[in-house]
Amino acid sequence: MTHYAMVIDLNTCTGCNACMAACAVENQTPVWADKWRTRVHDQEKGNDIANVARTFFPRLCNHCDIPACMTVCPTGATYKMDNGIVRIDDALCMGCQACVLACPYDVRYAVEYEDIHTAKEFYNEDVMKRSRPGVDKCDFCHDRVALGKQPACAATCTADARIFGDLDDPNDRVTRIVRSGKATPLLAHLGTRPNVYYINEHRQEEQP
């Protein structure tokens, strides 16, 4: 079996946002309305000039093993593939947005009729993957993955901050990092069993 997962190294992310751009073009997301499948938060930490640091926090769907979004979906539009990817069937989704509220990671957003019309002009109708409004989110670029490619965000990451792999393969880099305990999931206490792991940032500063 295959169990896709991602490790995000917060130490190497440079905040170039190439992942956001690659994802937007690959999946035709309504970026003009500030709707993205993946985001990189640009954060400033520290309270004085000697102690300040700029950090970046990429995030995307966590493709949980127990997805709260899938449980609440009344039509079965949200489903989990055998390889662990959580997807939305656009034909079934009526856009009640219960999944938006159920997701603890704020990775789902509403695609409205207006977004579909604008996307046809913005991206070219011939390449559009969706034609109906509904809820949208990251699907690990499942179509690319099926062809043996990396998700667009991981493939374009210049800093090796996004590492995509198979947790069921003991020799996979992702599996080795996760098993080492260096990377941990977000909000694990909620019981959703997420499959995106983070290597926490280590401050590169002089110790007092």
């Binding site: 009344p74 039509t75 079965g76 989704c93 009526m94 509403a110 409004p133 509904g134 809820v135």
Partner: peptide, 19 residues
């Protein structure tokens, strides 16, 4: 709702067996 036509998917009583 975002897609009003898709409401038919939840009006079907069989939805209780699938979801």
């Amino acid at each position: 709702l975002l897609d009003h036509l898709a409401v038919l998917n939840v009006l079907n009583p069989l939805v209780l067996f699938t979801k």
